[in-house]
Design a protein around this nucleic acid. Structure first.
Length: 729
DNA sequence: ATTCCCGACGTTTTT
DNA sequence: CGTCGGGAAT
């Protein structure tokens, strides 16, 4: 009767067709959440419940939003251009640009990214005569951010602050906010905060949006924070047609203010709410699910739900024991190289806790000539050359942006130093104008340092582009700017050794701008800047490319692969040290493990290094999460070279011995063949033939056959499965 | 004003 | 180990 519901199970189709009133969909990992969301949107439109523009769907990333939009368009054959599918932040940015006047901003306000915010906070701390060692800018910003997430204004914060430190933070917060406003800037938190202000306190604006959106949907509800909750509250009109989807076991953004109570208290917040649970898992093997469930069961703070498996039993989880980060990477890359004969590289992902862990994997992959892509890390828009270029664009769009001004006033070098810029800032403050305005009218301020005269060309340049901006497509504008500044030559001069990538980045940036111009048609510099300010590396990730993916566990949320490696499973790293003594944080780490483990459809390999360099040498012990996996689900590959005597002994016995010194209780580190690193050229030790060199290898895993040249014995053909081989070199 | 060096510091995770 | 900010030297 309705093709939208055809291939859905009962709960899924229930979630799709329950359109009226509040609805909470608890969607376990791999339970077809995205499918339900897209079908639900399509259903609303198909049933003529609402016009596209009356629907608001909020996702976690721009990429997720784009995909959702695409899939709904596929289902319906177009007609959804006006449907609002975006992230909280980009929705707010758009709303604020439209309503900026209501808050005393103009619509070309600048969005400050974290780096900008930190440096502004640093300036504020210095300006207040405080020590920025005692008051770490980052930590202060964190506090300010937390306050904004609770809808606490600078004044309100100051009113309740007590003691020297809180008092100082209050002053920093207050000054920071004043400077932001002077720059016509908003940080990420302001986007949400100000939107709530408008929706809640401004009858016209609030009323408009409440009556406009007939249906509101939020994905990843477990990761929303208090401001986002308030925003939802104030945008959902009396119809109360709000549908949120989430899974408390996948809440991994607590550190950013995400409040798990939002999902736990949904029924209280939205009386009359229906709850639908999707507990059928269509993604992973039975073994993977059982292992992941066993781990997450150690969390106290959960409602507890059981995922029902639909797949096969599947293979055991691999547990790789290695000596250090380098051998970890080497062995996993070996594994990848062998496995690629059955699994495309695009279906493999290496997940780690911290970005810093990516390096050895990059090196190994490069050495093996395997294509890879890193998601996250140093985001494109955070690279210095891109930030510099963007600062120009930002200043062109918004002459009040003193932070951008400060960034580029002496780049390229104009022989204008700290003293001069300080004097400009001083004058600006006194006159109640922006730095750029002062410099642009330098002749009116005779007591400015003489060096300001050198900024004539700079002002001319900015003025020229300010005139051009309104009628010129962004990419052409940017290209001309790059040419005028002679940026390419500048970059080549700076970096005499390599000097290629920054230039390529600039080119890529212009290319991206061209795409934007194509899509938008009109010139809209401010809009473009807002867009890319909210862009992340994750958003341009293409999971269909024939490449191994490297990323943090956080970035992996919502993705799936045939084969997943979770590396660095060591106490202090995963879970992180600082989470270890706080039960709440520890549970979040465990959820993070759960998220990672449930990304895979078929194969999961974990790895633990017995020593790892982390500011100074630290030897580490296996993560408790490994210990929480029932041993019968694990296949252990011990590739460690240390303590050969203990090793040889336990191998002779070939029994399940008690764990070695560093093993957590319950994990038995028995010997197994090192299938992963068995490849031509390797030196191996065989119990009867002694030492030999691998000549060739065919097949993989259980069926791997090797030809080995043994010293004094000659070439032997051997099934890797039966030979108790140990890699020695 | 620019450049270079040293020392401290810090590391999650991201919109 | 690596980056970044601060300080001294030129």
């Amino acid at each position: 009767m309705n093709r939208l519901l055809d291939d859905l199970n009962e709960a899924q189709s229930d979630a799709v067709t329950t359109t009226q009133g509040p609805l909470l969909v608890i969607a376990g990992a791999g339970s077809g959440k995205t499918r339900v969301l897209t079908r639900r949107l399509a259903y609303l439109l198909r049933e003529r419940k609402a016009a596209p523009y009356q629907i608001l769907a909020v996702t976690f990333t721009n990429k997720a939003a784009g995909e959702m939009r695409e899939r709904v368009a596929d289902l319906l054959g177009g007609f959804i251009d006006q449907m609002n599918v975006s992230t909280f932040h980009s929705f707010c940015a758009r709303l604020l640009r439209r309503e900026a006047g209501e808050l005393g901003y103009d619509s070309s306000f600048t969005i400050f990214d974290e780096m900008d915010s930190v440096s502004l906070v640093r300036n504020c701390i210095t300006e207040l005569g405080l020590d920025n060692k005692q008051f770490a800018p980052k930590a202060q910003l964190r506090k300010i951010s937390n306050a904004k997430n609770r809808m606490t204004s600078a004044d309100a914060f100051a009113a309740t602050a007590s003691g020297y430190f809180e008092d100082a933070t209050a002053r920093i917060y207050s000054l920071y906010q004043r400077r932001l406003r002077e720059c016509h800037g908003m940080d990420f938190d302001d986007l949400l905060y100000n939107t709530v202000l408008l929706l809640r306190d401004n009858e016209t604006v609030g009323g408009f949006y409440r009556s406009r959106f007939k249906y509101v949907m939020v994905d990843e509800y477990q990761d929303t924070n208090h401001v986002q909750y308030l925003m939802l509250k104030h945008i959902v009109g009396d119809h109360n047609n709000v549908c949120v989807v989430g899974d408390e076991d996948q809440s991994i953004y607590g550190w950013r203010g995400a409040d798990i109570r939002n999902i736990l208290d949904f029924e209280k917040d939205f009386p009359g709410a229906r709850i639908i649970r999707l507990e059928q898992n269509y993604r992973s093997t039975r073994t993977i699910l059982q292992a992941a469930s066993a781990v997450i069961a150690h969390n106290e703070a959960r409602k507890g739900k059981t995922l029902r498996a639909t797949g096969e039993v599947g293979e055991k989880l691999g547990l790789l024991l290695v000596d250090n980060a380098e051998t970890e990477a080497a062995n996993i890359v070996d594994f990848i190289e062998k496995d690629r004969t059955v699994t495309p590289l695009s279906d493999m992902a290496v997940l780690y806790r911290t970005n810093a862990q990516s390096r050895p994997f990059e090196e190994q992959l490069r050495r093996h000539g395997l294509p890879y892509q890193i998601v996250g890390g140093i985001a494109f828009y955070q690279r210095k050359e891109i930030k510099d270029l963007m600062a120009y664009l930002k200043l062109i769009a918004n002459p009040y942006d003193d932070v951008s001004f400060g960034r580029i006033v002496n780049y390229p070098k104009r022989r204008v130093g700290d003293k001069t810029t300080a004097a400009i800032a001083e004058t600006a403050r006194r006159e109640g104008r922006s730095c750029y305005q002062i410099v642009a009218a330098a002749d009116k301020y005779p007591d400015l340092p003489a060096a300001c005269k050198r900024l004539g060309l700079f002002v001319e340049l900015i003025e020229k582009f300010r005139r051009k901006a309104p009628e010129m497509p962004v990419h052409l504008l940017t290209q001309e700017l790059v040419d005028d500044l002679n940026l390419v030559q500048e970059l080549l001069d700076e970096d005499k050794t390599v000097g290629r990538t920054p230039v390529e980045n600039i080119e890529a940036f212009i290319e991206g701008a061209a795409e934007f111009s194509d899509a938008q048609g009109s010139a809209a510099l401010a809009e473009y800047l807002a867009d890319i300010s909210l862009y992340t590396d994750l958003d341009e990730y293409d999971e269909t490319e024939e490449k191994v993916t490297l990323m943090t566990l956080h970035a992996a949320k919502g993705l799936e692969y045939d084969c997943v490696f979770i590396v660095g499973l060591e106490e202090g790293l995963f879970p992180l040290q600082r989470a270890m003594d706080d039960p709440m944080e520890l549970e979040e780490e465990r959820r993070l493990f759960y998220v990672g483990a449930t990304r895979t459809r078929k194969q999961l390999v974990l790895s633990t290094a017995s020593s790892r360099f982390r500011f100074g040498e630290v030897t580490s012990i296996p993560s408790r999460f490994v210990k929480e996996i029932p041993p019968e689900f694990l296949q252990i590959l011990d590739l460690r070279q240390q303590q050969p005597s203990v090793r040889a002994y336990s191998r002779q016995r070939a029994t399940v011995q008690t764990s070695t010194e560093s093993a957590p209780d319950g994990v038995h580190y028995e010997w197994d063949n090192d299938h992963a690193s068995l490849r031509p050229g390797r030196i191996v030790q065989h119990p009867t033939f002694g030492r030999g060199k691998i000549v060739s290898a065919e097949g993989y895993g259980e069926s791997m056959r090797l030809e080995i040249m043994f010293t004094g014995v000659g070439v032997k053909k051997i099934m890797a499965k039966y030979a108790r081989l140990k890699v020695v070199g």
